[in-house]
């Protein structure tokens, strides 16, 4: 049971190993604050949707499962959106449209399809929590690197030396791609032993259509 929780942290880290949820990873990591906010919001949605989908797994007919999952996820995203708007309006402004876009974050749909639809409630919740924390950790790491190098601060506090030499490009879009690429290269290097890890596309519910359409990201 503990394994369901810990696997999302490093071994199957959704961002760095499974390469899911790349859009928010690149978009909201210009600062640590928005990165953490996005991570926590997505974790909340992931835990709730995993539990509900796991409870409903015997009721949802196989043919309409994807629309059913999307509806459940969208409902929780709407709840989270309202909570953030009410209690953290500055976070709502900095996340902007990426907050409702958690609906189409493929980590959440991917975990619903790969795990919650096949396992009981408690393991599904732990799986969601582990994956969510793994996602948050990756965002936190990327946000820290980009904010320190690009803005010379961390969580808004100025860092000596870096604050007088900010490398602006790190908080601009190209910096996002570059830092993500470098982190993934580092993860590849560390993970070389675990070469049998599943490819990103297998955990995406659309993988069958994607593979027939073109080659996957990993091939």
């Amino acid at each position: 049971m503990i394994g369901e929780f810990t696997k999302g942290l490093i071994k199957e880290n959704p961002v760095l190993c499974l390469v899911l949820g790349t859009c928010p990873t690149l978009a909201v990591t210009t600062g640590v604050k928005s990165a953490l906010g996005m991570g926590i919001a997505a974790t909340a949605v992931l835990v709730c949707s995993n539990s509900v989908i796991s409870l409903l797994r015997k009721l949802i007919p196989n043919r309409v499962r994807i629309p059913a999952y999307i509806t459940v996820i969208a409902a929780f995203v709407t709840i989270v959106q309202m909570i953030v708007k009410a209690y953290a309006p500055s976070l709502d402004r900095s996340l902007g449209v990426y907050l409702p876009l958690i609906v189409v974050n493929c980590i959440i749909l991917g975990r619903a399809e790969m795990f919650a639809s096949k396992h009981p409630v408690l393991p599904s919740m732990l799986d969601g929590l582990g994956m969510g924390i793994g996602f948050t950790a990756a965002l936190f790491l990327m946000g820290s690197i980009r904010e320190i190098l690009g803005a010379g601060s961390w969580l808004g506090f100025p860092i000596p030396f870096f604050d007088s030499h900010p490398v602006l490009i790190f908080i601009l879009p190209p910096g996002g791609f570059f830092v993500f690429g470098m982190l993934m290269a580092a993860a590849n290097k560390l993970n070389k032993a675990a070469s049998e890890k599943q490819s990103a596309c297998d955990s995406c519910p659309m993988s069958a259509a994607c593979k027939s359409g073109g080659e996957g990201a990993h091939s």
Binding site: P174, F177, G181, M182, M184, A185, K189
Partner: peptide
């Protein structure tokens, strides 16, 4: 070797994004 596949793709995406800046 460790840059093969996605990492190098992302680095080249960074360069393409630079041009759009």
């Amino acid at each position: 070797e460790s840059l093969r596949g996605l990492p190098i793709t992302l680095v080249s995406a960074a360069l393409v994004a630079c041009s759009f800046l």
